[in-house]
């Protein structure tokens, strides 16, 4: 029953895209309102029907996918309001919609009872921390992609339009890149990294702890751990370079993109190729 509810916000996000197609300024406002409406519905589902604490066997993995979609949207809305960059919603919404649809189709997965029993809290914290960190990195990824495209446009001086914003509709302004400025995109990227890194670090440590409990050995070269550590290392290097040497701009953006691709790899790796290593049956 709950799964069907996921489709409501997913449908709203997809529908809002059709609204976005025309070039009217007023219609664009409707687009933004629709996205917010989708987020509100998502939050309602989350707070009213969710029961993450009452984790039972078998675990509904779809709930975590839904949680991922919610936290992703939550972060995007927060950043959108804080940095006055509503346009990132435009890029985040499809990701969220895909997440919701995956949540609808995902099968029930069993988590090994060993973990559920004794380490329930740690397991929950591990999942939630990793998901929050990943969502922040997802935002950094999208912002970096925008940065790379926009930077290339400015460097090559091609298709670069200067428009007077007052007399141009917002969608057009977004298409022409008038609203993006490189410095702001870079700042958002940096913020995401700074906030996301501690989450992911603690999350990975907890994961290793859980894995040790599962296999009774602390360090084994398990593929999932290697992947996570590589990802962690990329972000660690990126953060260090930024803080110490003032790495900025295109290189930082490219590293963010690579880091996020590794996250996707390691997640799909652990879920599809080596589920048993991830404590799944």
């Amino acid at each position: 029953m709950l799964k069907e509810l996921y489709l409501i916000p997913a449908f709203i996000y997809i529908f809002s895209y059709f609204i976005f197609l025309p070039k009217e300024k007023k219609i664009y406002k409707i687009f933004i309102y629709l996205i917010y409406a989708g987020f509100v519905i998502q939050s309602l589902i989350f707070f009213l029907f969710f029961d993450i604490k009452g984790l039972t066997v078998p675990v509904h993995i779809d709930r975590f996918v839904f949680f991922n979609a919610w936290i992703l949207m939550f972060i995007a809305v927060l950043f959108g309001i804080f940095y006055k960059v509503e346009y990132i919603l435009l890029f985040i919404a499809p990701l969220v919609a895909i997440n919701l649809i995956i949540g609808f189709f995902v099968p029930h997965v069993l988590i090994k009872p060993v973990i559920i029993g004794a380490y329930k809290t740690i397991l929950l914290t591990h999942i939630i921390l990793i998901l929050i960190g990943d969502s922040l990195f997802a935002l950094a990824f999208i912002v970096s992609l925008i940065y790379i495209f926009q930077e290339r446009k400015i460097k090559n001086k091609k298709n670069l339009k200067i428009l007077n914003l007052e007399s141009v509709s917002l969608p057009e302004a977004i298409r022409s890149g008038r609203r993006y400025n490189l410095e702001l995109l870079d700042n958002i990227n940096y913020q995401c990294l700074k906030i996301g890194f501690p989450f992911i670090t603690v999350g990975i440590v907890m994961g290793i702890y859980l894995s040790a409990a599962l296999f009774k050995i602390v360090i084994v070269a398990k593929p999932i751990e290697i992947m996570s550590l590589i990802t962690w290392l990329i972000y660690a290097v990126l953060l260090h370079e930024r803080m110490a040497k003032g790495l900025r701009g295109k290189k930082a953006a490219i590293l963010s993109v690579i880091g996020f691709l590794f996250i996707i790899f390691s997640l799909s790796f652990s879920f599809y190729l080596f589920p048993s290593f991830h404590g799944l049956e």
């Binding site: 926009q150 400015i154 670069l160 339009k161 200067i162 428009l163 007077n164 007399s167 141009v168 890149g177 008038r178 993006y180 400025n181 490189l182 410095e183 702001l184 700042n187």
Partner: peptide, 25 residues
Amino acid sequence: TETKVAASPVSVSYAAVELSKKIFN
């Protein structure tokens, strides 16, 4: 309001400021 006759700036100085806005926050 209904056409874009005045939408795109055509002076060098204006363009310079607009370009800076694309780079700086």
